[in-house]
Design a binder for these strands. Structure first.
Lengths: 244, 244
DNA sequence: CGACTGATTGACGCCGTTCAACGGCCGTGG
DNA sequence: CCACGGCCGTTGAACGGCGTCAATCAGTCG
C-alpha cells in the first residue's frame, strides 16, 4: 500500500503527474483530486529534481518556498547552531517530506543533504496551503504529519538523554530496519547510506565508539557488517538491547 | 505585548471569556473574532482548570480531546519509552500550548505535569479545528505553532548531542532567562520551579553533575543560587559558555 | 597509480557517573 | 509552637565508559 517505486532516472524530466504518485504516501496532499474531494480537481505538477549525493535539497537560511518529498534516495537533515555545532536530526528516506522546518519563520532552519543521488518532488507550500484551504481533510492530515515529525524528535531526545551507546546503536538499527520494512524493502538486509561519522553525530557519539559498538555486535553474532552493507542476524536480541 | 496576567484563583470558575485573554499570545486561535476575521465572531469558552502541583494536565495514553493553554504556572512535558525510560522534553510556562503531541494518533504520547499550582485554559481540539476551517489565517498560525515546537526540539537535540555538561546548564539558564523576559518577568532573577532531578533528566545528566556545575558557576560569580532562587550575575559569560 | 576519504583498532586519560554520607528546608502532626 | 521525618540538594571519593590521539587499512576517485 505504501509502496514507493524505486528511483528510475528516466522520470527526472517529466512534466506531467508521474503515475508512481498513485501509490505515494502523501498523494492526498499533492493531489487531492485522487481522493474525490470536491476541492481542486487537479493540482499543477511542479516537477521533480535530481539531487546528487552530497548536494543540498535546501539550505538553512534560504527563503522557504517549497516542501520536498523524497521520491527516491535518502538524505540527512542537519541543524547548526550559531557557534557551528551540528546535529543530524533525521535520515529521511523515500516517501519522507522535507522542509517543514521552514514553516515557522519563512526561512529554512535546517540543511537537507542527499546521501545518494535522489529524486525529490517539489511541492510549493503556497499551493499546498491552497489545497488545504479547499480540502479540510488534507489540512488535518497535514497537521498530523507535522506532529508526527515532532513526536519522532521526542523519541530521539529520549535516546540521546537516557541511553547508553550500545542501546543507541541497537535502537538506530532497529529503526532503520523498520523504516526499510515500511517501504517494502527487506528489514534484515540493507545498506546504510550514511557514513559512520553521520551515525555518530546523529546519536551523540564519536566515530570510534560507533565502530567499536558495531564490532561488538558483530562479535555477538547479532549483525554482520561489511562496510555499509548490513545483515541483521538476531533481531530479537537487537530489539531487546534497544530498550524498547 | 505578550503580557500574561499572573494567576488569580478568582478566575478559576469563570464561564465567560476572561478579559485577560485579550493579551494572550494565542488569542487568535482561541478567539478569532478578536482579529476581525469574518470567521466565527465568537467562540464558546470552555473554562479553565486548576491543576495542583504534581498533578497531570494530561497523561500519555489518554484519548486526545483538548489542547491546554497554560494560563499561569509552569509544567514539565515528559515522554516515556516502553521500557520505562523517561525524558523531559520541555518546561512550558505561562502562554505555552500543551497537548499537541496527541494530534498525531488521537492519543496523547506524553505526560504533562504541573510544577506548581497552575491554571490552564481548555481548548477542545475539534472546535479549534472548526475555527481553522473558517479562518484560514488561524490555520496557518497553528501550523507555525506546530513547527515552532519541532524546531525547539531540534535545538534541544543539538544540546544533548553536542554539548558538554557546562554548556548544557549554561544554555538551559539562558533559555529560562529568555523565556522569563518574553513573559515580562525579570530575566536576571527568578526561581526555577523544577527540581534538580528534573533539570538533570531534561539535559541528559545526573543530579550530582547538575549540582556540581551550579556550584562551579557560583564560584565563578556567574550566578548566585540559593536552592531554587536564581540570580544571574554575568549574562554575557553565561551566554558565551552556552555555545550560542 | 597515488592521494584522499572513510573505517577500524589500540592505548590512554578524563569527564561524568556511581556510591555514599550529610545538611537543610518544608510539611505534618503532636 | 516545636519536634520529627522525608525529600531535596550538596559534596566527596573512586570507578569506568567514552572521548581523544594515533596508527593502519580499505575502498574510491582523479
Amino acid at each position: 500500500m505504501d509502496n514507493i517505486v524505486v528511483n528510475s532516472s528516466s522520470t527526472a524530466r517529466r512534466t506531467t503527474i508521474p503515475s508512481n504518485c498513485e501509490h505515494c504516501v502523501t498523494a492526498r496532499l499533492c493531489h487531492p483530486a485522487l481522493e474525490g474531494h470536491q476541492a481542486l480537481r487537479s493540482t499543477p505538477f511542479h516537477g521533480q529534481k535530481l539531487i546528487h549525493r552530497g548536494e543540498h535539497v535546501y539550505r538553512a537560511g534560504d527563503p522557504f518556498l517549497n516542501l520536498y518529498q523524497l521520491h527516491s534516495g535518502s538524505a540527512k537533515v542537519r541543524v547548526t547552531s550559531l557557534s557551528g555545532l551540528e546535529q543530524i536530526t533525521a535520515f529521511p528516506i523515500a516517501g519522507s517530506l522535507l522542509g517543514l522546518d521552514g514553516i515557522e519563520t519563512g526561512v529554512y532552519s535546517c540543511d537537507a543533504i542527499a546521501l545518494e543521488d535522489s529524486l525529490v518532488c517539489i511541492l510549493p507550500y503556497a499551493e499546498l496551503m491552497d489545497n488545504c484551504h479547499d480540502d479540510f481533510g488534507a489540512a488535518q492530515e497535514f497537521n498530523k504529519l507535522l506532529v508526527s515529525n515532532t513526536n519522532q524528535h521526542c523519541r530521539l531526545l529520549l535516546t540521546l538523554g537516557c541511553m547508553t551507546t550500545e542501546e543507541r546503536i541497537a535502537g538506530f538499527l532497529i529503526g532503520m530496519s523498520e523504516q526499510m520494512a515500511a517501504n517494502g524493502y527487506s528489514p534484515l538486509e540493507f545498506t546504510l547510506k550514511m557514513t559512520r561519522e553521520d551515525i555518530a553525530n546523529h546519536l551523540g557519539m564519536r566515530v570510534e565508539t560507533v565502530c567499536r559498538v558495531f564490532s561488538r555486535l558483530q562479535l555477538a553474532s547479532m549483525v554482520k557488517m561489511s562496510r555499509r552493507q548490513l545483515k541483521i542476524r538476531n533481531v530479537d536480541a537487537l530489539r531487546q538491547m534497544s530498550c524498547g
